[in-house]
Amino acid sequence: MANRAARILLHSIGAATMVYGYKGLSRLGDFDTWIRGQYGGHFQFLTIDGLFAGMLVMFTGLLLDLFPRTSKGSFIFESLTNFKRLLVMIALPVAAVVASVYWPLILVLPKLILTEDFTVEPTSKGDVATPFRIPLDIDLSLHGFPGPLLVLDFLLFEKKFSQETMQKYAPLLALCIGTTYAMWAEYCATKNNYFPYPFLTFSSLPIRVVIYATCTTFSVFVFRALNWLHQ
């Protein structure tokens, strides 16, 4: 009973935190309107794509928590369990990439990760648009809390993935996700004339390919490391 209560608590906090972060985007006023008016809207950002995957992990986990114990072994229960494990394989590596790229850049080179606030007109021709910073509570809900919450859920409440899964399927899934996002970001940029993240806009195509490949490889490494730490 205590274990079930802990599951419900973690999944409820996780779901509420991530929903709060996404809903908080509407508080950004004109900047939110400007982003939504672009092709792809907020879903240009890997952060938001990963956030929705994380939400699905938490909501699916909550559904499983609320199932009666007698339902274990049923088709619906087993299907939801397998679906959640697939979501974990997607959301956890993406959250690792988002946190590992976002926080170092936001602390050292914020202009490489923060979108310029084009809703504010420069006061003179020599002025340069400043990066738009979102409120801290929204920032933490989007970039700070999802990763640790997903790690806790995996280490505390999920079974360790098999060696075969880690060797064969995890890298293949990461490659599919990385390639899909790269193609999506590139396509959105052809419509908007710039990328959602300035460091991509500043980079040539070969450099962007290296960035996509490096992030994909890093996600596999982190996921394998977490699975290795799993007891």
Rank of each mutant, 00 (worst) to 15 (best):
residue 42 H to N: 09
residue 90 I to V: 13
residue 181 Y to W: 11
residue 228 W to A: 14
residue 98 V to N: 00
residue 126 G to M: 15
residue 195 F to N: 06
residue 219 S to E: 05
residue 21 G to F: 00
residue 79 S to F: 05
residue 134 I to E: 00
residue 136 L to P: 00
residue 152 L to W: 02
residue 36 R to K: 06
residue 143 H to V: 01
residue 155 L to T: 05
residue 85 R to Q: 08
residue 23 K to P: 05
residue 17 T to S: 07
residue 225 A to G: 11
residue 39 Y to I: 09
residue 230 H to L: 03
residue 227 N to L: 12
residue 170 A to N: 04
residue 138 I to T: 06
residue 229 L to H: 08
residue 225 A to C: 10
residue 180 T to K: 11
residue 105 L to W: 00
residue 105 L to D: 05
residue 115 T to S: 06
residue 170 A to K: 03
residue 118 F to P: 06
residue 29 G to S: 08
residue 196 P to T: 10
residue 24 G to I: 10
residue 64 L to N: 08
residue 150 L to G: 00
residue 17 T to V: 12
residue 155 L to D: 02
residue 58 M to S: 12
residue 45 F to M: 08
residue 157 F to H: 09
residue 81 T to S: 15
residue 50 G to F: 00
residue 95 A to S: 06
residue 45 F to G: 07
residue 45 F to K: 07
residue 21 G to C: 02
residue 104 P to Y: 13
residue 192 N to T: 09
residue 116 E to M: 10
residue 182 A to Y: 14
residue 29 G to W: 10
residue 147 G to T: 06
residue 26 S to D: 14
residue 217 T to H: 07
residue 181 Y to K: 11
residue 97 V to P: 01
residue 138 I to W: 00
residue 136 L to T: 04
residue 210 V to I: 15
residue 45 F to I: 06
residue 217 T to C: 13
residue 111 K to Q: 15
residue 131 P to D: 10
residue 173 L to Q: 12
residue 141 S to Q: 05
residue 222 V to W: 05
residue 31 F to Q: 04
residue 23 K to Y: 13
residue 131 P to T: 15
residue 62 L to C: 14
residue 178 G to F: 00
residue 180 T to A: 14
residue 161 F to V: 11
residue 181 Y to D: 11
residue 217 T to P: 01
residue 41 G to F: 08
residue 21 G to H: 00
residue 220 V to A: 04
residue 172 L to C: 06
residue 61 G to W: 01
residue 148 P to G: 07
residue 26 S to G: 15
residue 225 A to Y: 12
residue 142 L to Q: 01
residue 67 F to H: 13
residue 92 L to Y: 03
residue 153 D to G: 01
residue 137 D to W: 02
residue 192 N to Q: 12
residue 9 L to R: 12
residue 206 P to M: 08
residue 38 Q to D: 15
residue 113 I to Y: 04
residue 54 G to D: 02
residue 6 A to P: 12
residue 128 V to N: 14
residue 89 M to T: 01
residue 227 N to W: 01
residue 56 L to F: 14
residue 30 D to E: 13
residue 182 A to M: 08
residue 119 T to W: 01
residue 69 R to G: 13
residue 142 L to A: 02
residue 221 F to E: 05
residue 37 G to M: 07
residue 20 Y to C: 11
residue 33 T to E: 12
residue 96 A to Q: 09
residue 20 Y to R: 09
residue 101 V to C: 11
residue 166 M to V: 02
residue 92 L to T: 05
residue 193 N to D: 14
residue 58 M to D: 08
residue 96 A to C: 14
residue 42 H to L: 07
residue 54 G to A: 03
residue 7 R to Q: 15
residue 158 E to S: 12
residue 6 A to S: 08
residue 167 Q to C: 03
residue 92 L to S: 00
residue 10 L to W: 10
residue 180 T to D: 11
residue 14 G to F: 01
residue 69 R to P: 12
residue 118 F to R: 12
residue 197 Y to W: 04
residue 132 F to T: 00
residue 15 A to E: 07
residue 62 L to N: 07
residue 19 V to Y: 14
residue 97 V to I: 11
